[in-house]
């Protein structure tokens, strides 16, 4: 018997998954050899004496945590009710009921005032880093953590496909002739496409649009404002600020670092360290201080696969290259000091 085999059989025994034959084999071995028996006893001791890590949390503000829970419950219930209302319409109990309901609805529809349209909101809540969803037209949306996408199921895809976004999302729009897909943000800017892939980040006072494929039209003040629109091409990144007509449009370089939240990949080719730090801050939602700031002009080349790295490992790598001293001020606040550009 090998050591690994002994351990395997012991583990099977402990988890209750051992077969009668295996049990017999194990016992035979242990009886035949005192040496194996002693080893098994040691492992059994380790197994039995292993106790779970401590189960108390040092300090916690239970009032604040409970408030957070209530807010979360409220959001979840609102989302669920909206989804249920749609379902209830469709899940009838047989044709007769369905027909009666339909008739009733028809009558009610004619006499009642126009109801406020129902809205479905989908949110990507922590701890998951992102959430994937499909809209009724087949368009694929990847929502970044904390982003909210809402649309009105009744009117969606009637004349146009309209959604409202807060936060960041990557859209892969299913092409549909004559039914433009429109993303609007809180202040009414609109992004219109026919079929393409693009990323929108709608913060409260800034809008960023990045086109990965196809073409996109952007109305900074909305279609009906009478103000002009801009056409964005592949690899265009547009930034516009609330209340400003002027746009800033840049061609993005070879990489897709702006989409790191989705691709989990960062590429740099001889770029200033400032770009690297900014990309890391955005991806990890952290604060990274560099002292002296002149270090930010050092050049950097390389690529990262971020889903296998945490921020601390990343920073340790930078420390090795630039001889920084790293200091962790909190889980999201780090400081790098000293250092020198290699090759200078």
């Amino acid at each position: 018997m090998s050591h690994a085999e002994l351990l395997l059989l012991l583990h099977k025994q402990w988890s209750g998954e051992i077969t009668p034959e295996e049990q017999e084999r194990l016992e035979g071995w242990l009886q035949a050899s005192p040496e194996w028996a002693a080893r098994a006893a040691l492992y059994r001791l380790i197994w039995e004496k292993a106790s779970p890590p401590q189960t108390t949390w040092p300090e916690m503000d239970l009032d604040a945590e409970f408030d957070r829970l209530l807010a979360r419950i409220e959001a979840a219930e609102a989302q669920r009710q909206a989804a249920q209302r749609v379902k209830r319409v469709f899940i009838g109990q047989g044709w007769r009921v369905a027909a009666a309901v339909l008739l009733l609805f028809g009558v009610v529809w004619l006499v009642r005032p126009r109801p406020t349209p129902e809205t479905i909101s989908v949110q990507a809540l922590p701890p998951l880093p992102e959430r994937e969803m499909r809209l009724p037209d087949g368009t694929l949306v990847h929502l970044r953590q904390n982003a909210t996408l809402s649309y009105q199921p009744e009117t969606f895809a009637r004349k146009e496909r309209r959604v409202r976004l807060q936060g960041e999302a990557l859209f892969t729009v299913r092409p549909q002739a004559r039914k433009p897909f429109i993303v609007e943000n809180a202040w009414g800017a609109e992004v219109e496409v026919l079929g393409t892939q693009f990323d929108v980040r709608a913060d409260s006072d800034q809008l960023m649009v990045l086109v990965c494929e196809g073409r996109v039209q952007l109305w900074p003040q909305g279609k009906n404002s009478g103000k002009g629109n801009v056409v964005l091409q592949v690899r265009d990144k547009a930034l516009c600020k609330k209340g400003e007509d002027r746009l800033q449009i840049v061609k993005i370089p070879f990489h897709l670092n702006d989409l790191a939240w989705r691709t989990h990949r960062l590429d740099f080719r001889n770029e200033p360290l400032r770009e690297v730090i900014a990309a890391l801050e955005d991806y990890y939602k952290a604060d990274i201080e560099v002292q002296p700031p002149s270090m930010l002009d050092c050049r950097y080349s390389g690529h990262y696969y971020l889903d296998t790295l945490d921020l601390e490992k990343m920073l340790r790598g930078l420390c090795r290259i630039y001889r920084f001293q790293a200091q962790k001020l909190s889980s999201v606040h780090h400081r790098l000091t000293g250092g020198s550009c290699p090759g200078r």
């Binding site: 779970p52 890590p53 401590q54 949390w57 239970l62 922590p126």
Partner: peptide, 30 residues
């Protein structure tokens, strides 16, 4: 919540090694 929340956060923490996600996960359970 008061009875179980802290010990659940501690238990989850030993699997995720991340304080904030542990809290979020237990919040979702509740």
């Amino acid at each position: 919540f008061d009875r179980y929340y802290p010990e659940l956060v501690a238990a989850v923490f030993y699997y995720t090694s991340d304080e904030e996600s542990s809290k979020d996960i237990v919040q979702e359970v509740f």
